[in-house]
Write a protein that binds this DNA or RNA. Structure first.
Lengths: 110, 110
DNA sequence: GTCTAATGCCTAAGACAATTATGTATTAGG
DNA sequence: CCTAATACATAATTGTCTTAGGCATTAGAC
């Protein structure tokens, strides 16, 4: 697990990007996917994830559909067209940030 | 300038690393060096820098010497042996974080 | 058959690092 | 003379996240 401080500011970008690549997903699924992609290093907490999803929805970046699985309800999220634009922006921004940090730290990126 | 949220958690690492590479430095000098290394993208604010330097000093990671330049006083910071260990840790941690993020975002790092 | 871990959603209180806003003072340059 | 750059510093506020709750269903172990 990474020092959680480093994750700050990256959560929205991660969520958006995973949704872009995978399409329709529900909250829990997103946490699992990120866990997998990050090799257990990024463990999204629910207290951070759900507020973020709700915020992105309120801003019109995501739309939702609820689906019943047995007696359980799943809430699926999909990117809106606006959301798709935002992903590009955010990913570009974070990629640029990563490159800048690599320069400053003079770290080689294999 | 980057979205400032992304910087969170990286400030200590940046300061430590710059001090390791350049040796004895004073606060203002650090801001200028980081600005240069980051191609104007990372502009350390004083409200963040000085508290960080003081904190690292209080933890025994840095030692200080004051020097008079004309009527002005400069406070020079140098890494202690403990500080040198910390740099390695922090840089390794951040490098690992960067790699993880690159995987999750599937960004190519030229 | 019962108990635990995993699945699945959610909100609220608090921590923490950084931004923004100040304050003070010196020095170089137009 | 006045402004921008140099140089230090602290306080109030902001924002994102962690921690800590709460609720309910389902699969699997024993």
């Amino acid at each position: 697990m990474h020092s959680p401080e480093l994750l700050k500011g990256t959560l929205q970008t991660i969520v958006l990007k995973v949704l872009k690549d995978h399409g329709r997903m529900y909250g829990y699924e997103i946490t699992q996917r990120v866990k997998e992609l990050s090799d257990e290093r990024i463990l999204l907490t629910e207290g951070a994830l759900y507020p973020t999803l709700h915020k992105l929805e309120a801003e019109g970046m995501l739309k939702t559909e609820s689906e019943s699985i047995g007696k359980r309800v799943r809430k699926y999220y999909t990117l809106t067209p606006q959301g798709k634009s935002l992903v590009k922006e955010r990913v570009a921004e974070l990629a640029d940030f990563i490159k800048t940090m690599s320069n400053v730290l003079q770290v080689k990126l294999a």
